[in-house]
Design a protein around this nucleic acid. Structure first.
Lengths: 156, 156
DNA sequence: CGTAGTGGTAAAGTGACTTGACCATAACGC
DNA sequence: GCGTTATGGTCAAGTCACTTTACCACTACG
């Protein structure tokens, strides 16, 4: 499903699109969705089928390891209650633990379990897999350009 | 692996990240989220504050104009009931109508109202705005490269 | 024309989220 | 020190966006 036929969005059903060509929004969205789908696919392949897209946001780069729940909530732009709910799920499923923060008695720190670390690694592998495919499609030099340009946008 | 020392994600809170540099997944995700946020921001600025991110998926390129609900559901990867729910909302709020399909009496077609068309145009403006900023940051030539590379990935 | 398939909707249930409240600790004023 | 404000986390209750299930209308196919 990685290559799909070209321009699968131009079916007869949209003969007269009021809009012009896709802007950068759509162009970023679709590859990103492809990455996301691949990650979930691989996780389910390997038996982690109690995870869904919502859980994955927690594992999103750079991952929750060592983070304080409230920090994570800010980073992921969800309320701390919503995040706490997710952390509860993930803890119940054995992917992480919430441990007391030695430096702040109010606070906790997220610690990935072995199972949680596997998920993080699998996600990374899935992305690497897609990277390889894209590098093949664009050629390594141009893929490198793409990554550099995105990285620069990102503030690197 | 401790490059990206200038990255805003390397706060003291994550001194020993288990992962390396961001892979293409994160690099795509973050600019895309920036675009998404800008769109919602502009819509709310202009008084369309009864819309949220979920509604926007319906307006996502290439937009719902003329589409059959079930078609849209497939495209957006949601169940047809969930989509129908969203369409109901958007119809109630005056952004679109569901009209009978002349060619298939079972089917409907989505027709944007004037209000709905405004939203589509505003979204497009917001993206264009971001494009301009990025073109300035990267330089027009390199921004063009970025767009072309993404377009090629997309199957263009 | 009968039977399977497709498009759409309604109804009920669920659960991921919200808002609001609360307690414990920390940081800062004096 | 001691009171005040801010921060971190959690619980409880309510909500609503979605799911599942079912169903009807129409179409396609033999």
């Amino acid at each position: 499903m990685s290559r799909s036929s070209s321009s699968r969005f131009t079916k007869q059903a949209y003969p007269e699109q009021a809009f012009g060509p896709p802007l950068i929004g759509a162009l970023l969205r679709r590859p990103w969705e492809a990455v996301q789908r691949r990650m979930l696919e691989r996780l389910h392949d390997r038996g982690f089928d109690d995870l869904d897209a919502a859980h994955l946001t927690v594992f999103q780069y750079p991952g929750p390891q060592g983070a304080k729940p409230s920090e994570l909530a800010t980073r992921l732009r969800v309320s701390k209650q919503a995040l706490n709910y997710l952390l509860g799920e993930l803890e119940r499923l054995g992917y992480l633990e919430r441990r007391p923060d030695p430096d702040d008695l109010r606070s906790k720190r997220v610690a990935l379990t072995k199972r949680g670390t596997s998920v993080a690694m699998l996600m990374r592998e899935a992305v690497t897999e897609v990277e390889r495919e894209w590098a093949e499609q664009l050629g390594p030099r141009r893929f490198g350009q793409l990554r550099d340009l995105l990285h620069e946008l990102d503030g690197g």
